[in-house]
Design a protein around this nucleic acid. Sequence first.
DNA 1: TTGTAGGCGTTATCAT
DNA 2: ATGATAACGCCTACAA
Lengths: 332, 332
Amino acid sequence: MVTMQDVARLAGVSKMTVSNVVNNREGVSDAVRQRVLEAIRRSGYRVNVSARTLKSGRTGVIGLAVPEIDRPYFGHLAALVIDAARRQGFHVAIEQTGAAADGEADAITHSRTLHFDGLILSAVALDRLDDRPAEAGYPIVMLGEQDFGGRFDHVAMPNEEGAKAATAHLADRGCRRIAIVTGGVLDRVNAVSRRYHGYLAALTERGLDVDPSLFVPLDGLTMEAGRAAAHRLADSGHEVDGVVAVTDTVALGVLRGLADRGLRVPGDIRLIGFDDVPEASYSVPSLSTVAPDHEWMAAKAVELVAQRIRAPLRPTSQHIAPFELMTRESTL
Amino acid sequence: MVTMQDVARLAGVSKMTVSNVVNNREGVSDAVRQRVLEAIRRSGYRVNVSARTLKSGRTGVIGLAVPEIDRPYFGHLAALVIDAARRQGFHVAIEQTGAAADGEADAITHSRTLHFDGLILSAVALDRLDDRPAEAGYPIVMLGEQDFGGRFDHVAMPNEEGAKAATAHLADRGCRRIAIVTGGVLDRVNAVSRRYHGYLAALTERGLDVDPSLFVPLDGLTMEAGRAAAHRLADSGHEVDGVVAVTDTVALGVLRGLADRGLRVPGDIRLIGFDDVPEASYSVPSLSTVAPDHEWMAAKAVELVAQRIRAPLRPTSQHIAPFELMTRESTL
DNA sequence: TTGTAGGCGTTATCAT
DNA sequence: ATGATAACGCCTACAA
């Protein structure tokens, strides 16, 4: 490995001068600077990040913990976070939590062990972080899901508002028997339950039935679960003319499941999702959905981490992403 | 920050003993070990990875460079690589290259700067790595795409074999005018051109037309490009009863584009893709495709990196993933 | 403008 | 079985 010492020898200066050149510091004559740069180029020297880190206590890496990187929504989010982080000079290491509370708590511990400068946690299961190493000693920003009562910086989805707008849109299109395909534990405060409440709020506002048989539970937030739920809905014999799916991934599964039963979208049933994953524009039919501004969310999350790294003690702040209702073929 | 020195003081031993306990080394009496573990627990000590790295020269991190993490195929691949790496005790940092040769070369340089222990490079554009820092001084494994004439460890897709099988399958279903939707530069050796050759080989073997007008060029490997290609194909007036799409992502775009023109799959045109991304099972109609064993590929790539870290000088090896033909609704 | 000394937290080596 | 010492490569502080 080529060290500063080697470069110094090659350029005939002290290693301190090399350090000054590498870090673009003042007080190096142009002649020496050129000589050093040339020596760096010839030797192929690279700064040793570990050594620098050891002194500075910073790694320049922030962790991003998501349930599974291969779910369209999280892949999309990760891409945006990686780009936003690069713009601020950070690298991103991805942890997969497997959508389990243990995995999410592990990610926190893990990040500390690896000395990430901060962690962006897309928590879907961890709802009692107070039992865990909450005060981790480094910045944690919650992204998009659970709410923790102001104890963390938090970038939230417009869950309630978005679901309400989606449901109202179905009503505007003439739907009268609107089902919701959702899941998880609805008596806790989380993204899924908030969306459910948005759905209820819209029904109430429009004076539509709130019929328990129109509530289709879901066994996980996967396409397969959505497909199975659609089968149950179709086989139940309940009259339904609109479906709100709790995520686009689920909605794409529902779309498939309705096709399995010969039901046409939007002809027989209108369908709307939540997230606006890229695939939503390309499904057949294309999927109407609630489109939170993901880029805004990613940028905000990285910005909050960066701010907190600089000022660990500033009060936490909560933010809700703007959204747009994307009306496509599935609700024509 | 709690250091080994602090723990040592707390437990009344030397920091060397703490180090031995932390690393599960022999030669520490049970009594002392317990005392140290207790001190670690009470103090909340964590090893400083930077310091350890500085000594060992290893970071425990391997880079994974992919074009864009939010493309379904690469998201899926990343998830598998992350899991496989964890099983071998590595962490994964993801770099996005933007499918450009510059980005891919940057990833190599970058990995060295960050002192990754190795790099798994899913190169799609870089075809002249010899002009670049090829002998990077640390393990590079090429995953799934370009071929570099044996200069790297390489885990390849069954490009030619798979595309041939896909085309033959369309022929078996009765297709006689089989188009291919593909792109990139076909005179270089890469995944796309190999698949094209597989397509040609199957046509020749079955005695079918090799008609240049059935070659639909593609402006990138995206859904949008696939959609546009389908539009051109439909509008061209050429008689076509089967389409081979060079990737599933493109195929899903083609599916959408054919729907835009009122063409039914598989009724009017049969369609087959390549990759078997998760979405392929859920599209309407579900997508027949060539399914390379992605898990096998991810595990093999990580294994090759790990082997090369241990033995940098062993000869490179090339591997081709097994595949399976998944026949679904789009070719019924 | 440039150089020297010391230390960041860990581990390898060698001693006790 | 345990401890002292010296690196690893870099940077801060101070000296020349």
